[in-house]
Simulated assay, not measured.
Amino acid sequence: MSPHPIRPIGLRRGSDGADGGRAVFRSADTATAAKGSGDDRTTCRRSRRDLHRLPAVGAVGCDLPPAMLDHARAKPHADQVRFEEADLRHLPDWGEFDVICAVTNPMDHLLTDEDFASALHGIVRSLAPDGVFLFDQLSERAHHRSVRHPAVRESDGQFLTCRTWQHTLPTEPEPVFTRRMDRFVRHSPGQWHRIAHQNTFRARSETSVRRLLTRAHLDCVAVHPVSRLRQGGQRDRSDEGVLFVARHQPRQGRHS
């Protein structure tokens, strides 16, 4: 198992009523996915405004750090969500869902194929037949760009530095990147407080992802480039990430 902390996903589960919609989302960023049973369309929105949809769909949200759960509970309309603490590698059995969505690249934090397969096992167990799993990952090109261009930003009396470096794992062929972010907050003249965050990512190729999905009985039906949303609403760099869409193809006899 990877020693690094794993950023988990969150789950949305719909009612058992007429709409029948169920969905899954990562609660910390309110990135959402919803599938309507009537028109069989899947939509993905990365906006906290989507929380207003929850009364019609119903939701269970999960994350790993308690502080992130508290942050999610404080958002508008969060009273429509039941939040649970869970690890992406060991998802509890919460029943079946039509859609599972893991965005803001939590799957990148699964450094070994064993961890990735463990996460997929719980996701497949939670998906209804023909259910959809959506997730994104940063591209290797985006990681290399971060290595070449360390960032320093100033905002509201705070300084933020971001550095990325590449290394390898003895048992894994694909590159691994570690990103460290340091936030310096001024408390008084001449006195600063530093808050550090460090995360490690594995840059899996599309071929590797497809192979792991197939082994988990997930059919990769679409792969889309993902761009970043800059301040002012402008999008930049379509090579920033990749969105995968996979459909559950259950083995015969798993469902009656």
Results as ranks from 00 to 15, higher is better:
residue 150 P to R: 09
residue 186 R to D: 01
residue 183 R to A: 00
residue 147 V to K: 01
residue 31 A to Q: 08
residue 93 D to V: 05
residue 198 Q to V: 13
residue 162 C to I: 13
residue 198 Q to G: 06
residue 114 E to T: 14
residue 185 V to G: 02
residue 18 A to Y: 08
residue 69 L to V: 13
residue 13 R to I: 12
residue 108 D to Y: 04
residue 115 D to E: 05
residue 44 C to E: 10
residue 119 A to D: 01
residue 154 E to L: 14
residue 21 G to H: 04
residue 15 S to C: 07
residue 251 R to W: 01
residue 188 S to N: 05
residue 81 V to I: 13
residue 52 H to M: 06
residue 56 A to N: 07
residue 171 T to W: 14
residue 202 R to C: 02
residue 160 L to A: 12
residue 202 R to Y: 02
residue 129 P to G: 04
residue 255 H to S: 00
residue 148 R to S: 08
residue 223 V to Q: 08
residue 176 V to Y: 06
residue 233 G to H: 08
residue 10 G to I: 03
residue 44 C to W: 10
residue 239 D to A: 06
residue 146 S to C: 11
residue 185 V to I: 11
residue 50 D to H: 06
residue 127 L to M: 03
residue 110 L to Y: 01
residue 222 A to D: 14
residue 198 Q to H: 04
residue 123 I to S: 03
residue 119 A to E: 02
residue 41 R to Y: 04
residue 198 Q to T: 15
residue 46 R to A: 09
residue 219 D to Y: 08
residue 180 R to V: 10
residue 179 R to I: 09
residue 26 R to M: 08
residue 57 V to F: 12
residue 138 L to G: 01
residue 121 H to P: 00
residue 74 A to P: 05
residue 12 R to E: 04
residue 85 E to D: 06
residue 174 E to F: 00
residue 99 V to E: 04
residue 189 P to L: 02
residue 184 F to R: 02
residue 2 S to F: 00
residue 140 E to V: 11
residue 81 V to S: 03
residue 162 C to M: 11
residue 110 L to H: 00
residue 131 G to K: 04
residue 92 P to F: 04
residue 26 R to E: 10
residue 200 T to D: 06
residue 228 R to L: 12
residue 203 A to F: 07
residue 73 R to A: 14
residue 7 R to D: 03
residue 178 T to N: 01
residue 78 A to I: 06
residue 38 G to V: 15
residue 81 V to F: 05
residue 185 V to L: 03
residue 62 C to V: 08
residue 39 D to A: 07
residue 118 S to K: 10
residue 8 P to T: 15
residue 46 R to N: 09
residue 198 Q to W: 02
residue 180 R to T: 14
residue 29 D to M: 12
residue 39 D to T: 07
residue 233 G to S: 09
residue 82 R to S: 13
residue 117 A to N: 06
residue 128 A to F: 03
residue 206 E to D: 14
residue 187 H to R: 13
residue 152 V to D: 10
residue 21 G to F: 02
residue 45 R to V: 13
residue 103 V to M: 13
residue 3 P to N: 11
residue 148 R to C: 01
residue 85 E to T: 15
residue 56 A to F: 15
residue 49 R to C: 05
residue 210 R to C: 11
residue 1 M to N: 09
residue 89 R to K: 08
residue 156 D to N: 14
residue 91 L to G: 06
residue 105 N to P: 00
residue 214 T to W: 04
residue 256 S to T: 11
residue 210 R to I: 08
residue 40 D to H: 12
